[in-house]
């Protein structure tokens, strides 16, 4: 439970990584939700039965082989704890995350990439967006990043945002 002293997960506390082959195939849901809390929308929304949860208080476990990357879970997760990860054929990585800030991001926007501690670890480009009005004001934003950053990029800020911490 060390993560509760910090507010972020260290490498050894992360859920198992999907294999590179799996990540190359299509996007996969990666859920960073280690603590038992009474919450189950990801489990209930999954049409592929890929999220394992016996009791509402269990942390979800994703079966990466069953996950079809349909994004139903990331649309509803109230904890903003789900990230869709993918490695493209050209070797570029993609991370999709939930985004609830103004200004809304659009395809082509440049963003700063932040890790779990809020440290800037690079820049990326938005290459797809589910607009907020289509998902109860939680926009989904997919950013193109270096392949080796897909397990680190967990937040984004528009380049030039004055409101940075």
């Amino acid at each position: 439970m060390k993560y509760l002293e910090r507010g972020y997960l260290e490498k050894d506390e992360l859920p198992p990584f999907p294999s590179r082959e799996r990540l190359m195939k299509k996007s996969v849901a990666y859920i960073e939700c280690p603590q038992p809390i009474p919450c189950s929308p990801c489990y209930e929304s999954c049409p592929a039965d890929a999220v394992k949860m016996e009791n509402i208080n269990d942390p979800p476990e994703v079966d990466y082989e069953k996950c079809t990357g349909c994004m139903k879970c990331i649309r509803v997760c109230p904890g903003l704890a789900i990230f869709m990860l993918r490695i493209r054929e050209d070797g570029k990585g993609e991370v999709t995350l939930q985004y609830e800030f103004l200004p809304w991001l659009k395809k082509g926007d440049r963003v700063k990439l932040l890790n779990r501690k809020g440290e800037e670890i690079g820049e990326g480009v938005v290459n797809w967006v589910l607009p907020p009005e289509r998902n109860d004001n939680t926009s989904l934003v997919r950013v193109e990043v270096d392949e080796n950053l897909i397990f680190d990029v967990r937040a984004i800020r528009p380049v030039g945002d004055i409101n940075e911490g």
């Binding site: 507010g7 960073e32 809390i37 704890a81 809020g118 937040a155």
Partner: peptide, 21 residues
């Protein structure tokens, strides 16, 4: 307290935006 009192996921979403806890 020696640890965060609320849900970890709530803490994580502000921590990754750079708010120290």
């Amino acid at each position: 307290m020696p640890r965060i009192g609320g849900y970890f996921v709530h803490a994580a979403k502000v921590r990754r935006l750079g708010v120290p806890i």
